[in-house]
Design a protein around this nucleic acid. Structure first.
Lengths: 251, 251
DNA sequence: TAGTGGTCTAGACCACGAA
DNA sequence: TCGTGGTCTAGACCACTAT
């Protein structure tokens, strides 16, 4: 049925050195198809049996690939229904990407008040962080985010303009940006890295957040990456942590 | 070979309602044995074949159980050698439990300077956080931790005295506390939850960290839990984040 | 009832590490 | 050389969902 080492999708060479386990090849191919937008967020993937037949591997191998994708939150498996591409709905954002929760009460999604949105040449730092050539165009958004009705976060978002044509040109900018990236531009935020520091607010920042200058705030520097690992968004947030805290699970 | 639903370890009932998949039962039993100290940190577990034979399940079922434990960092699998109970060596602490890293350079383990260590009745808050009855004895340690040779963290650690008899009574308190808990008291820290806030340092705290009062600092409140989920340690850290940051992976 | 993912088994061969 | 975990297969039955 199979040679000693089958290679999915017949990449040509007999894969002597540098071969990879079949299930990893299957996993990578499935990711590739998601990147290409073959299946959009919320859509069902083919069944394990169908994928196995198409790729010429056993169902167990497809299953192991899908299990890994599920562990990375890239797909959601539902018994009796199928396997679906993960969506960036508010529930997922809340449990995966938004770590600021009230000291008392349940996690909640912040409202947004846009202060500015523009397209311009990126600064040196912006281009480096986003992996762009110096001087490439970026989209820059500044907004205040409210929790429990009060200003809690001053947030600046910087995006590669090439990935998001037309974003912010008069359009409304929705509260849930990752959902917009996915639905309008086919860009899926798959993971992010955050760097946290404690800082003092400058007068301007303090005014936006309606506290006194010199008030302490949590400074969060986040770089979000897409399915293929390329930088998609650089986001810097200044968070008031008087009634909230950043939740971190060490497992 | 097996009834419709085998139950590992013959817990008596035929497991009608509330039965659990075999691999979960196997996983829980393995955790139970680690809790009991049957295999100490760093020791090898029996091979998959041996465990399968002993428990009367297939090797695949044991494997799935072990894979889950490996995903939780409770065991480490090494091809060709065996499966080992995870240790709290500095490498693991560094990648799993110590998230404060230099802005430039590699993560490093902090040195410690003990300021106080005492055994006393716990405060109301301490007893609540640790799940103890009001007024139970706790061990309280206060130390300054140094990174790159300079004070960076003021840390207070509170433990249930009952779990750690004799700790701090003249003994040296090592740098790596989780290693001590495991090796001397058979208590394995398996996971923890942290709450982060930005605060201003009070005069006394500032003096200990050799900065000016009112300097911003990252306030980290950590509750660590053992294999069975019971609270083991409450730790509050005040961290200078001028040259360091807290690293958080969102995956 | 049909189709999906979830569990469990049995057996084969491979890659790695230690003796 | 042997024993370990790692990969892959094939097939069975179960639980859940939709129709």
């Amino acid at each position: 049925m199979h040679p000693t080492r089958a290679t999915v999708a017949a990449s040509g060479e007999p894969t002597k050195l540098g071969f990879r386990p079949l299930y990893m090849q299957v996993r990578d191919m499935l990711v590739q198809r998601m990147v290409q937008g073959l299946w959009g967020p919320g859509e069902a993937l083919p069944s394990e049996q169908d994928l196995a037949a198409e790729l010429g591997v056993s169902q167990g191998t497809v299953r192991k690939a899908l299990d890994e994708l599920a562990a990375q939150n890239l797909v959601v498996r539902r018994q009796g229904r199928g396997t679906f591409v993960a969506e960036h709905d508010e529930a997922r954002i809340l449990f995966q990407f938004f770590k600021l929760v009230p000291d008392v009460g349940n996690p909640c999604f912040p409202e947004s008040r846009i202060l500015s949105a523009e397209r311009r040449a990126g600064t040196a730092e912006e281009c480096i962080r986003l992996g762009l050539v110096t001087g490439a165009d970026v989209i820059h958004v500044h907004r205040i985010r409210l929790l429990q009705g009060k200003p809690a976060i001053s947030e600046t978002v910087t995006l590669p303009a090439g990935l998001f044509p037309g974003l912010g040109d008069g359009d409304l900018i929705p509260n849930n940006l990752y959902g917009l990236y996915a639905s309008e531009y086919g860009v899926t935020v798959a993971k992010a890295v955050e760097k946290l520091k404690a800082v003092l607010l400058a007068p301007e920042e303090a005014e936006q957040l309606e506290v006194a200058p010199g008030h302490p705030a949590l400074h969060i520097d986040r770089l979000a990456r897409s399915l293929d690992g390329s930088p998609v968004e650089w986001r810097v947030s200044l968070c008031l942590t008087d009634a909230f805290h950043y939740h971190s699970d060490l497992t």
